[in-house]
Design a protein around this nucleic acid. Structure first.
Lengths: 335, 335
DNA sequence: ATGAAAGCGCTAACAG
DNA sequence: CTGTTAGCGCTTTCAT
């Protein structure tokens, strides 16, 4: 089991560890000849720099923490892909955790990442996270944070988001303009930014189109496929069923979609359906799903760039930045 | 910017750092009273254990490295989800890298993970990785490795795989038994285990069903959606087109699928299609895709458990284990 | 152009 | 039950 440290190289060459360290980092003071000898010996001894020792010494690491509700959801895995793409080019590595939509687990993940001395955090909060108190430790330690998608207003931090309100407004308006009269909404938790904003966009679109708002047409749930199934079943049990449904995101829309198919409802003739996210799957359904595009990969890249900027910034507490992407309604055959 | 180290706690309480360290780790030698005082002070001073220092001291970390071709592909994000689920419960964190199907990038990722002193590696190799020389550093340093999905035989390591050969054999046999005569295969790289084995299963199934093997019916490509598009276009340009296609995986099948739809071929009447992976999307297509089930989430969990076992094992070089999951043909309407 | 020495935060002999 | 000491691997003044 080989080792190979800077000291080993130094002993081998009868020079001091500090010279080796400098040679390895291409310090101008060191002679070409010494550098060559050091590099050669380093390879021969199978030397690998120890990031732990470097981090301990310098009091900083090249590790970025990421916390998302669930890695396997397309939106998040796509964002993580984008993040990795950016961090890779800056020689940072990512530590990825999932909260499983659970506030406590989010907190535990956060502590683990702080212990690992992450240089910064990228997070999309869990659907059960209502207060942001646990993020205080980051501020106290000067660790920058960038929220993406699901933000938390109670703590200072940069944000990369989309105009959820407008996207939802467009989606619901589209349904109204198509002539649907009883437009329902399978909503996300109202405690979460995107849940609240998409609901507000929906509500205001109805008002704008002189459609009555009816609370029985709004069912609140989570962000997963199963929440869509539960939601649509509730709506279908109404004495006056909706003729169109706007779902808070694509997983929820797809849950509703599969129930509708199973129960032999024709989409869009019996019930129209609109989602939000533009998961790749939505285009391949039959009929393909009308949805609101959210560039998850790009959002990941932007969030990572923003975080890296703040990490490299001299400010101990950089001014929070908010980047808002514009959504785009993609009209397909389901509406 | 607060700090709070063991030494700070020690100074505060006028005791020694070692006592604090022991109290924090609930060492039996330390009195209840001291422990309480330490814990209380630790909280007051916002103490966080420093994993870097611990790792440097103990020469081991609680970090697992993961390298996959692309995080955003469903198969991999699902496996990563499973891995995280297991490592989370064992207080390990995961560092996730993507190779982008590029051998060189895989190597760079590997070096970064070694520098970070990962305790073990989980990897699905890139499609351009043909030799396993770069994994030698792991053996030299006693870092256990578990391959999943795409393995590399040239290096010793445990493996979590599925019976690719049998799965492919079943898929192609199914097409033969349905009466298709010109069954094509959009194959993966023959240099990669799963590409080779799935091809062999296909070839042997034809033979078993007395169908002639024709090399013009086999087009080799990569594992991505676009490879499916390219592949199907090649097949459609043959003077004698195939009447059925078996794709190396679901992304490739879906690429083919979208071209077929675009070009107005009826599935399965004009051309039947079978995939491999059982991505959730495959069930929702119209017609839904016949495919071979591969439990990616479970595979991730198993691979992680296996790796943790080896990490905790006393053996410096644990005997490699091979776990093979059985695939399952899922017959839907596309065949 | 190179070396000596100190220290990042923590733990584990060893000593008492 | 608690303290002293040394050291994990590296970088960085401060000499020379």
């Amino acid at each position: 089991m080989s080792r190979g440290t800077i000291v080993d190289i130094a002993n081998e060459l009868k020079i001091s560890p500090s010279t080796v360290s400098r040679a390895l980092r291409d310090h101008p003071d060191i002679s070409k000849k010494t550098k060559h000898r050091v590099i050669e010996t380093a390879e021969r001894l199978d030397y690998f720099p120890d990031s732990l020792a470097q981090g301990l010494k310098s009091r900083k690491t090249n590790t970025i923490g990421i916390i998302v509700p669930e890695i396997r959801h397309h939106y998040f895995s796509s964002a993580i892909s984008g993040i990795e793409e950016v961090t890779y080019r800056s020689d940072f590595t990512i530590m990825v955790c999932q909260s499983n939509e659970d506030y406590q687990r989010e907190e535990i993940n956060l502590r683990a990442l702080v212990s690992n001395r992450m240089a910064g955090l990228l997070i999309s909060i869990s659907q059960t996270t209502t207060s942001g108190g646990h993020f205080d430790i980051l501020r106290r330690r000067g660790i920058p944070i960038v929220f993406f998608d699901r933000i938390n207003d109670s703590i200072e931090g940069s944000q990369v988001i989309v105009n959820d309100y407008q996207g939802a407004f467009d989606a619901a308006s589209h349904l109204a303009e198509r002539g649907y009269k009883r437009i329902a909404h399978i909503a996300g938790p109202s405690t979460i930014s995107i849940g609240r904003n998409r609901f507000l966009g929906y509500r205001d679109a109805l008002e704008q189109h002189d459609l009555p708002f009816s609370s029985e047409l709004v069912v609140e749930g989570g962000f997963r496929e199963n929440d869509g199934k539960v939601g649509i079943n509730k709506l279908l049990s109404l004495s006056k069923k909706p003729d169109a449904v706007f779902a808070v995101n694509d997983p929820v829309a797809i849950g509703a979609y599969s129930v509708l198919k199973e129960r032999k409802f024709k989409i869009p003739d019996d019930i129209a359906l609109v989602g939000f996210s533009n998961n790749p799957i939505s285009a391949l359904l039959e009929p393909p799903l009308t949805t609101v595009n959210q560039p998850s990969y790009e959002i990941g890249k932007t969030a990572a760039s923003l975080l890296l900027e703040q990490i490299h910034s001299e400010e101990k507490h950089p001014v929070p930045v908010i980047k808002e992407y514009q959504t785009q309604l993609i009209i397909r055959k389901s509406s």
